[in-house]
Amino acid sequence: MAGAVADGAREGGAQVDVRRVPELVSDDVAQASHYKLDQAAPLASVDELPDYDAIIVGAPTRFGRVPAQMAQFWDQTGGLWMRGALVGKIGAAFTSTATQHGGQETTLFSILTTLLHHGMMVSGLPYSFQGQMGLEAVKGGSPYGASTLSDTDGSRMPGSADLDGARFLGRHVATLAARHIA
């Protein structure tokens, strides 16, 4: 999903950096718990956030909310909040859940709420992306952001509608950011 969001943002003319937040457990615990550790994306830094015109946050759902790793990362942004360092930037969100009713919208809201507290202007996945409509297939997407379903064992990969929605979101945010800074 992150790759599709990034591709869409590039299509919209943006320069894109894909980052990930640090794990909160030791490597031994992460390996024993089957964490996905082979990620190519470098670690994100709170200090680099003000350098971006737009920030699209992606996080899996953990019991209807963001996982501890993402919450801990954003909990470190109090200094940015105090300075108003993210005020006026464009923000958006995407997520994945194990099940259809596993908390996609509450996770997206928790991300968007954080971005709003920072004074960011937020965008969802507008219904102009028609791929999120219809019941012909299991798919994610909502007016709050792009999403997908992974199944309880993580075996389901995003479908074409999910990836199209992620690309649409990235392109849409890039377009909004370009208008805003122009």
Rank of each mutant, 00 (worst) to 15 (best):
S96C: 14
V122M: 02
V138D: 05
L176E: 11
L80G: 06
M70I: 14
T114E: 06
A137L: 09
Y35L: 09
E11S: 13
S123Y: 11
A59K: 07
K89G: 07
L86M: 12
H180W: 13
G140K: 00
R179H: 13
G124E: 06
F129I: 03
L176W: 08
A182F: 00
I90M: 15
M1I: 10
S142T: 12
Q15V: 15
G145W: 01
L112V: 09
S150Y: 02
I181Q: 13
Y127W: 14
V29T: 14
Y35I: 02
D27E: 15
D164I: 00
F73N: 05
S110H: 06
K89H: 11
T152R: 14
L163I: 07
A44L: 07
Y35H: 13
A4T: 01
M1Y: 08
I55D: 02
E48Q: 12
A14F: 04
E11R: 13
Q31G: 03
A4P: 00
K36T: 15
T95E: 04
V66T: 10
Y144K: 07
V66L: 08
G165R: 00
R62E: 08
D38M: 03
A182S: 13
P42D: 12
T97P: 02
A98Y: 04
I56K: 01
T148Q: 02
H117E: 10
G79D: 11
V173S: 05
D17M: 07
A30N: 04
L149E: 08
K89N: 09
Q104D: 03
I90K: 10
V46G: 08
L37Y: 08
A30C: 06
G88D: 13
G119Q: 05
G8Y: 02
D162C: 00
P126I: 02
F73M: 07
S160I: 09
G78T: 11
S26Y: 10
T148N: 09
T148Y: 05
L149N: 04
R156H: 07
M133F: 10
F63G: 03
P143E: 08
K139N: 07
K89R: 15
R65N: 15
Q104K: 06
S142F: 05
